[in-house]
């Protein structure tokens, strides 16, 4: 049920993001979704890719500071209130969100939100109980 996300530490200086995207292009790794968290001094690039294990290995070999992080891929209707419904469930259950980012699914009428929460298993359990679809990694990577 969990999705492997690639996280990369990047200094805030020109060319760093480009170095990552070039490497992934060269190795034939496709990016499904991405987000960047940034401060004045550094940024953290978070990626969902088609082959996280290989992407991790390649980035590591190229001396990037990289880690694999477990996140949740949650599917919801692509219409007003879609995210609100999911947020209600998580809030109700007292689950804190570290960060999230969204993209529109290639599956018509659906949106995907990637969540990083403190307690993944608890989040999965309460979402499933409310009938929300939590997409497993394999499905997401091939989407």
């Amino acid at each position: 049920m969990k999705v492997k996300q690639i996280s990369i530490f990047l200094e805030n200086k020109s060319g760093r993001l480009n170095a990552v995207t070039n490497l992934l292009a060269e190795k034939g790794i496709n990016i499904r979704a991405l987000s960047i968290a940034d401060t004045s001094a550094f940024g953290i690039l978070r990626l969902i890719v088609n082959d996280p294990e290989r992407a991790y290995k390649e980035l590591k070999e190229a001396a990037f500071t990289v880690s694999l992080t477990d996140v949740l891929g949650v599917e919801m209707p692509d219409k007003p209130g879609g995210l609100a419904m999911v947020m209600d469930i998580l809030t109700e259950a007292g689950i804190n969100i570290e960060y999230l980012y969204a993209f529109i699914s290639s599956d018509q009428g659906k949106a995907m939100v990637i969540f990083r929460v403190e307690n993944l298993d608890e989040a999965i359990e309460c979402l499933l109980k409310e009938g929300i679809r939590v997409v497993d990694g394999e499905t997401l990577y091939k989407m």
Partner: peptide
């Protein structure tokens, strides 16, 4: 230099 092995992907941890 940020540690290669023990890198947290959360901004607040790094801060």
């Amino acid at each position: 230099e940020v540690s290669m092995t023990d890198f947290s992907d959360e901004v607040r941890r790094l801060e």
